[in-house]
Structures are given as C-alpha cells and as structure tokens.
Amino acid sequence: MTLVETNPAVGEEDRPVNLWRDAWHRLKRNKLAIFGLGIVVLLAFVAIFGPYLTPHDFLSQDLQARNQAPSLAHLFGTDDLGRDVFSRVVYGTRTAFLVAIVVTAIALLIGTTLGAVAGFFGDPYDRVIMWLTDMTMSVPNLLLVVVINASLKTPIARWMETQYMATLNPFYRETIWIDFFLVFGSMAMISWPPYARLVRAQVLSIRSRPYITAAMALGLSNRIIMMRYVVPNALGPLIVSVSAGLGTAMVLESAFSFLGVGVNPPTPSWGNMISDGLRVWQHHPHLLAAPAAVLGLASVAFSFLGDGLNDALNPRGTK
C-alpha cells in the first residue's frame, strides 16, 4: 500500500481488467500448486515429445534381456518381453493425457451445456436434466463401462470388418480406434454428471445475486453480463473441478485398463502396465513400481494444482 502511495505508478493505472494475471500472482505464492503445475507441465511435455525422448521403441522386444532390473541402459528396467519400461511409461503418458483431455473435454461439454440449460431455464428442463444426471450417477461406474464395452465392442468390430471387406480402406483395420472410441465414450458417459451439477448450481446461485441485478441496472448487455459477471464467478469451482477431473480420468483409465476394459495391449497405458506388473511384483517390483509411481505423481500433481487454482481464482481467499 505504502509502495503505491510513494509511487503512483502509471503502469499500474492503465492495466486492463485481468482476473487471470491476478490469479497467476496468487498462484505463484502457493508452493504446492507450483509443484503440481511443474509436474503437470513436465508430464505434458513428455506426452507431446515422448517419441523423441525415449531411448528405445516402446514395442521392440529384446528376449535376451527380459525382466531386467533398472540400469543405465534401461532406466526402469525391462518387462517380461524385454521391452524398455521407461519408454513404455513415457508412451503411457501420452495415452493418459489423451484419455484425460478428451474424456474431460467431452464430459465438460455435455455437463456444462446441460447444467447451464438446467440452471438458466429452470423447469421443465431442470427437472428432466436432473433426472438424467441422477440416473447416470446411480449406476455403478465400472458396471456401466463394462456393459458398454461388452455390448458394443463385438458389433463395432464386426461392422468395421465388413466395412473393410467392402472398401479395403485400411482405416477399418485399425482396431485401436475401437478401443479409444469405447474408452473415451464410456468414460465421458460416466464423467459428465458432476460437471452438470456444478454448473447448474453455479448458474442458479449467481443468477440471483444482487450484483447481477446491479449489472442489469447499469444497462449492460446480456452478453457482457454473461462474460464478465456470470462466467468469471462460476469459473473458479469449474476450473478446480476440471483440474481434479483430469487426474481422476487418468486414474479411471488405469482402473479400466487394469480390469481389461480400457486401452488394449500393445498400446501402453499405465493401467495395463500396472495390471501386468501386479502379477509378478514379488519377483520384479519395478514393473509395478514405475507405472504406479508415475500415475500417483500425476494424480497428486493435478489435485495440488486444482487446490491452488481454487485459492488463486478467489480474490477473497487468504493471501
């Protein structure tokens, strides 16, 4: 305060409305959040540039060097087919991010749209949408995913096969798309309800706040009110939940892979690596430890970041 008084900085004065810059200043002071952010950025970097970073191909097998303990040549050792575990974990990061981002994006899109419609227009939309939400949430997640996988996988594979026979388009030969389609689809199907509820609650509560009426009394257009009054006030909780949701989606994908309904081998995913490692962990603990540690780290990093963002985006929070 005194600083500003002695120096009525001109630069301060014409700086634009910037919630984000202020939030960034607050975020920087939060060590855990910065730690989380660092890990997330590192993982994202690894996910993007993975293929250039790995010393070995994630698929190439070296049957002479199976189940080796970590060494300089193989940082995380090798698995039962002599594949480099480090390369597989790196490639698994890619899978994890792909799944997390795509699933969260789809879930967010569905959830935000339904939640905003429910909150803004009220009954009867509200009632129907909330029924749908409650219904989805009442079905056990894993059960739903297993059912979707079991019931859709074969028909889709068969359809792809006939398409291939008819067109000879190699695209229909890539069964990996079925995996991704089913995994993304079914995970998004179970992930959207929390977003819908959150957005609905936010819109409901913000819509009736006095500052919205005050903004209307200033003659501001609905668009400006939405963009500068409703959205920024609703965004904090949503960003936090997205950040946590990304971590959850990674864990969820691993859980599905672990159960054999996720991404299928040979595509590496942390989940199917954990699943494979678990069978031999007494003899080769590194096969379990490496992917599990990375998964844990990613999950923790996303939660720290989410918490930090929550504090940073709320100007009333303690400093």
Binding site: L19, P210, A217, P232, P315, R316
Partner: peptide
C-alpha cells in the same frame, strides 16, 4: 442498491 456487500461483482 441496498446492500453494498453483495451488489458489487466480487471478482472485478
């Protein structure tokens, strides 16, 4: 408005 505590946008 009546209530100065809630009639200003808290994030602006």
């Amino acid at each position: 408005f009546q209530d100065p505590m809630t009639s200003l946008n808290p994030v602006m």
